[in-house]
Design a protein around this nucleic acid. Structure first.
Lengths: 360, 360
DNA sequence: TTGAAAGCGCTAACAC
DNA sequence: GTGTTAGCGCTTTCAA
């Protein structure tokens, strides 16, 4: 009838047992006689008990450990943003006995990922948040994690074969389609468009291939005469890279380029800055310092923001909510595909400053 | 040194006073001698104390009341989104004894605003969140509120003359500039661009005028030959409206239109849908059902999302945090100016579904 | 297997 | 003015 604050104490009184017993049946911990169990279950069925989460967390002295497995941010600005998100989450949850430990690996060294993964598996935390950038290496880790019954959340990159509590990120296929739209918007029908994977091997990165697939699909659906092709540029010799780019630019019908890696943009841009950009569209990823500068100066036309900081923050948030409140999590949390131009760039940079919308 | 869980008890010990005294200075309630005040303040300055919210709400029997003053959502889809944000916030904060009551007024009736305002002033809640759409009527209310020392937060529309804890919304001047960029992107230099204020008197709406100002400024800065003018269409007679639109379209050099009101879009669009849209750009506001449909069908080229739901949610969030934690709030929380196209529309609609990032 | 009781950190009433 | 203390609802330890 009335939902007026039923406490464990009330249940105990109604059932004719002690609060200790009620607690034991509620969490089915400890031994309870059949007779007591019956009594408690009966009264539970008659009333509508909602546990007080506030009291629950205060009363419990359990200290939770969440581990976060992500690339070392000191080598990569994109991951530095993720790292910031983790740090903010850390600050927010500290007071609730939720310890967040980061375990870093080298983005360019699969071996270091495995090493970090082993460390996590051994530590057996209460929860795990990870960016599984190395598909092959992530699989065995996640098998271990699942076997150990450790709840985990994926962010940034999805792996369809595994069963996380939640995946947090963007729909990269759609992201590719968006790139295609931006690169070709209001252009005539028979241009050339090129997808550039710079400094990351696309064949080993589902991440990049998804974007490429979406990009190509866009033009297929539109059934234009546009020529679309993809290119890997991962040469460490700068002059060779420049030759490749120069070669691209000889195409008089070049409509635009789509650079799939956030760091790749600056390679292209620094070349274009010297040689002078022709009238084609350039679409890249993320609000890295360099990228925003090239956006400002008009070399990049659009940036698609993947919002790494927020992704990481929400990742920790989800896990913490799950552990503390036993809340169900949405299977996927897809972030919107944010379009950034010269004009709205500042609004994004400013919004980032007091983003801490916080655990509380 | 170590930031490990400082409790009031610790502060008391360090300062050489009792927890009661610490509590009193923390909330400046009750009498405290200058000497004790000094001691506590000193130790507070040395350490980094974060009160434990959980314990605070559990220990306190205070029930907070936050009132939200906003337009009746049943007459307007835009405000329905705000209303959703309020409802989500309500659910999130309920467990912390934070009651959120909405007071509605009629968006088209200044008088009803005043009536609602009076109700709020009389109720004397612990906090107030409001969208001051009627500038003239809001001023006297806010004077009352300030006199009564009720903390309040503004959202959606800013009023420079008053002193809220925080303003939550977007930079509308920049929004206008963004509109100009989108409407003219890659167009040639001597087009005509028109700002349309539909069904709201622009002279009485700072809101709309700010957008117009930004729009015009963009072209001034670019110093193109573009012709830019603004037009109010607020005729209830539909055929007259159609005549006006038809008249606009006779301009062979029409480069684009910028519709400043979210509801205004459908008027223009329904006309264009029948008559067939020519090759000019159309930029409107917000993810209203109709607007997204016109975006899908290609009549609208870009929508700028004002994110009403999130604005309202954050509004409540800020107030609640302030009341519970006595936290300082940022004077302004400006949301990013979100660009929505056919391709990223779904990502925005989907993200909205599980947006509840929650108080906890 | 059970009940009693001591916390968790904070608030607020109550003595002194 | 100040310190002490009894809760808030739940968890968890400890006797019984």
């Amino acid at each position: 009838m009335s939902k007026d604050k039923i406490r464990i104490k009330d249940i105990a009184r109604l059932a004719g047992v002690s609060v200790g017993t009620v607690d034991r049946v509620l969490h089915n911990r400890g031994k309870v006689s059949d007779i007591a169990l019956q009594k408690v279950m009966d009264t539970l069925r008659q009333i509508d008990y909602e546990p007080n989460l506030i009291a629950r967390t205060l009363g419990s002295k359990k200290v939770y450990r969440i581990m976060v497995l992500l690339p070392d941010p000191s080598y990569d600005e994109y991951w530095m943003h993720s790292f910031q998100g983790i740090k903010e989450a850390q600050a927010e949850w500290k007071q609730y006995d939720m310890n967040i430990e980061t375990v870093l690996f080298n983005l360019y060294d699969r071996h270091s990922f495995s090493k970090a993964a082993a460390k996590v598996a051994e530590a057996k935390p209460d929860g795990l948040l990870l960016a599984p950038v190395f598909y092959q290496e992530a699989l065995p880790l996640l098998q271990l994690i699942e076997a150990a019954n450790i709840p985990y959340v994926l962010f940034n990159t999805n792996i369809p074969e595994v069963h996380p509590l939640s995946f947090i990120g963007q729909d990269l296929y759609e992201s590719g389609k968006l790139g295609a739209e931006l690169v070709s918007f209001d252009k005539n029908d028979n241009c050339t468009y090129v997808v550039l994977h710079i400094n990351e091997d696309s064949r080993n990165s589902v991440h990049l291939l998804e974007k490429e697939k979406g990009f190509k699909e866009y033009f297929k659906e539109k059934s234009t005469n546009a020529r679309v092709y993809a290119l890997d540029i991962s040469n460490t010799d700068e002059s060779l890279v420049r030759d490749e780019i120069e070669n691209l630019l000889t195409d008089q019908e070049l409509g635009g380029m789509f650079v799939t890696t956030s760091k790749g943009a600056s390679i292209i841009c620094s070349y274009l800055e010297e040689s002078g950009k022709k009238k084609f569209r350039l679409v890249c990823y993320d609000l890295l310092k360099e990228n925003t500068r090239y956006l400002q100066s008009g070399i990049i036309d659009f940036l698609i923001n993947q919002n790494p900081k927020q992704q990481a923050f929400v990742g920790v948030h989800y896990l913490a909510r799950h552990l503390l409140l036993k809340k169900e999590l949405p299977a996927t949390k897809l972030f919107p595909l944010e379009i950034v131009t010269r004009q709205n760039l500042n609004s994004y940079l400013a919004a980032d400053l007091h983003q801490k919308q916080g655990a509380y």
